[in-house]
Design a binder for these strands. Structure first.
Lengths: 131, 131
DNA sequence: GCTTGACCTTCCAGTAACTGGAAGCCCCAT
DNA sequence: ATGGGGCTTCCAGTTACTGGAAGGTCAAGC
């Protein structure tokens, strides 16, 4: 299979797939003409990567997860630890964003948006306490 | 005032302040020895920038907000539009993260984390439908 | 046999917003 | 005068790609 086919199958753009090869996440074979030749296992890995990335795992997390996936003997505790730490990060980020959202939605609600030159949003940015 | 003082006042690291000068967000004066010399207005701007960045506005948003702030005659509608678009982005991001959080917390809950070699997290990454 | 267009290749550069580090002045206190 | 901290510039690296240029390859159609 050529890169275009795998791209369609995995949902990842060809550029991304080449990049994943560059950084050593996959190692497709090569045809005589120099084209990458993807096996089943490559496609499978790429789909795995696409899903892990969609869940927000970093590339380095993905590298580790792939290794653990390849090495089925390993205890699942390692995987769980990675997922749990990632989950904690996401929960922190959600909380941060919700605080920002609240501040901003207050501001937007208070701002008439009409022609008045004194804007409560700018005013707040002047005095809002830094966290 | 030297950069260290302003850094303390504004809460921004000196490196960041220099960077903001590089990209034209501020233009502090220079002393004879080449040191940056920050006026009140620079400090004020930096504090404004710190707050806007803490609310997640991009640097380019900040540039625009600063300009609108300088130009008090402008209608507040412009500011409101920026804030509203930014708010919408944040709300989208929260929703995305919440979906991820749900998936992940299911996974972590299901994963015993004990020595069993079949890990439900890895299994799910194999088959989870791509969004 | 030749052209055309869709693929494929590599390599270089750019993105956002800093951050780290090196090399080298400058200033003040001892 | 010397030591320590603060200041300067410049270069490079971070994350995870993405865009684009220059060029090779392949299959179809004339």
């Amino acid at each position: 299979m050529n890169i275009g086919d795998v791209a369609k199958l995995s949902g990842l753009p060809p550029k991304t797939i080449r990049y994943y090869e560059d950084i050593g996440l996959i190692s497709p074979l090569r045809d005589a003409n120099g084209y990458r030749s993807f096996r089943e296992s490559d496609t499978h890995k790429l789909a795995f990567l696409g899903r892990a990335r969609a869940l927000g795992f970093t590339i380095e997390d993905c590298r580790t997860l792939l290794a653990l996936w390849d090495d089925k003997q390993r205890a699942s505790g390692d995987v769980r630890a990675i997922a749990q730490e990632h989950l904690a990060q996401i929960e922190r980020k959600i909380i941060d964003l919700q605080a920002i959202q609240e501040t901003l939605s207050h501001l937007v609600r208070e701002c008439s948006g009409d022609g008045r030159p004194d804007c409560p949003i700018l005013k707040t940015l002047e005095v809002l306490p830094l966290r």
